[in-house]
Design a protein around this nucleic acid. Structure first.
Lengths: 140, 140
DNA sequence: TCCCATATTTGAATTACTCAAAATAACTCG
DNA sequence: CGAGTTATTTTGAGTAATTCAAATATGGGA
């Protein structure tokens, strides 16, 4: 029996271990999780795992293109499974909540900066900062 | 005698201490420096200072709006004096070099995401990733 | 010049993560 | 199916960047 998650791992040349499957499943159900968050979820099913293993796995998955690492200023690295679609993020400046933002205007205007000081630009990463619905309503 | 730097400090309600003046001057001559970088420059003029003091000062200056803190993924926090002009940055994915990028199209298209999941967006932060001139030429 | 709120110093602690050696488990091939 | 090879995980230690907090020192108003 071969689950989709296992298949996805083998497709990129990684062994389908219990830890990797558990981490991918955790990310599928809770995107934008940090390593500690993932560790807590995974360790209930796999009590022998460690935070180092989770870091290890997350690094492997990210290298292989199965997950993406996001690092908003002021918080630990977050991971998500949405990959290859160049989406962006909104971060709540009060509570740190994060949500996906699909690409800004359809085509990518942000990839065309005016003057780049000679840099060859490859990608653009946009982070919106604002206030999430919860913080907005609790401010009332 | 009141230097511009001292005046700027007093204008925001901070005392004009030697450490703060030295840090601001360091940032003026080398933007996008990290705390350690600033510390090394400042400590030649002020041998009694410490890396903690520099962190302290940088935090104060940033809170007061005299400097801005930038945190590109994968590197320590960087500080700069250019503030209040909503400019962005290009980071070299090979060597970490960083340069300013003035706002993308004149008016700020990036501030208008399509769907924000209910977030009230206040600012947009754009980081361009690419290859700097030095790394481009040394790749030849 | 004196005072005291504000800064700095000093030292310790924390967080998030990396590194590396030893143990274990996944996949391959006979 | 079972053994061997090698990828992966475990375990333990180490690091970098930053924060916290108590003690000391200093800027600038009275």
């Amino acid at each position: 029996m071969e689950t989709d998650t296992e298949q996805a791992l083998r497709d990129v040349g990684l062994r389908a271990t219990a830890g990797r499957v558990a981490v991918l499943d955790a990310l599928a159900s809770m995107p934008h999780s940090n390593a500690d968050h993932v560790f807590r979820v995974v360790s209930s099913a796999l009590p022998t795992t460690s935070i180092q293993s989770v870091h290890n796995i997350l690094a492997d998955l990210t290298m292989a293109g199965l997950s993406r690492r996001v690092e908003p200023a002021g918080s630990a690295s977050l991971y998500e499974r949405r990959v290859n679609d160049n989406h962006h993020h909104v971060v709540c400046s009060q509570c740190g909540a994060i949500a996906d933002v699909d690409c800004v205007v359809g085509h990518t205007p942000c990839l065309s900066p005016s003057a780049t000081g000679g840099f060859t630009v490859q990608t653009a990463e946009v982070t919106f900062w604002g206030v999430c619905p919860d913080c907005t309503s609790s401010a009332a």
